[in-house]
């Protein structure tokens, strides 16, 4: 009961978002409901799952899928680094905890007040409760979506909408207007050059440019 109360904020986020994913998945792709549920059980990564809808619709190559999902989720590397020394779980409990370490679960367990009296054993249970909301939302959404007979609701807007929200929040945090403008240019050029592999091309180009910039910064700071 205590854990349920702690997980309520995640419930209010995951249920509608999971439903949105389920509806979007079956209506945009015309696939059976269980594929959507399989994504939420096996992949369990919100924004990457929404991106997957677009990637499947475009029949993206599997290399592009791996690179795009890995980099989109690469922020999780820093969650792991934060928990490295404090996570005391072992065995399958630790394995599940790491598997299910979403943005929401990470912020929930790192933001817990001391007096919550939560044991490490409760962490993976909390992660499991959160995933059950996500899977349940997906299931409802996918079943609802399969019932929708309207041919075209315009749901394709949901994916760009989600990423615009995330981009706005990135700008709020980093104020990296110049950098984001360059990224936008790279993206547009990549579409113009090679629309089919736009993500792979633009992500690789951006990464190479960032590495060059990083090495240049190191070089100049060392030579001073």
């Amino acid at each position: 009961m205590h854990l349920f109360r702690l997980s309520l904020p995640v419930l209010f986020g995951y249920l509608p978002l999971g439903m949105a994913f389920g509806v979007l998945f079956v209506t945009e792709l015309g696939l059976d409901w269980y594929w959507a549920v399989a994504f939420s059980v096996i992949v369990f990564a919100g924004s990457a799952q929404f991106l997957s809808v677009g990637l499947i619709a475009n029949h993206a190559g599997l290399l592009e899928v791996f690179v795009a999902v890995f980099l989109l989720n690469s922020r999780h590397i820093f969650y792991g680094l934060t928990l490295l020394s404090s996570l005391k779980l072992t065995g399958w409990r630790k394995a599940y905890m790491v598997f299910a370490l979403t943005d929401e679960t990470f912020s929930l367990i790192t933001g817990l007040p001391k007096e919550s009296g939560l044991q490490q054993q409760d962490y993976w249970r909390l992660a499991g409760i959160n995933q059950s909301y996500w899977v349940f939302g997906t299931l409802i959404g996918a079943l609802l979506g399969a019932q929708l007979t309207l041919p075209d609701l315009g749901l394709e807007i949901v994916l760009p909408a989600l990423f615009v929200v995330l981009a706005v929040e990135q700008y709020r945090t980093h104020r990296a207007a110049g950098l984001m403008l360059i990224a936008c240019l790279i993206g547009l050029i990549a579409i113009w050059l090679w629309q089919d592999q736009m993500l792979l091309l633009s992500i690789t180009t951006a990464l190479v440019l960032m590495l060059i910039n990083y090495l240049r910064q190191r070089w100049t700071s060392h030579s001073i």
């Binding site: 991106l51 760009p160 990423f163 995330l166 981009a167 993206g187 993500l199 992500i203």
Partner: peptide, 8 residues
């Protein structure tokens, strides 16, 4: 931030 712009 770079990735989010590319995804947009």
């Amino acid at each position: 931030p770079v990735l989010m712009v590319l995804l947009v």
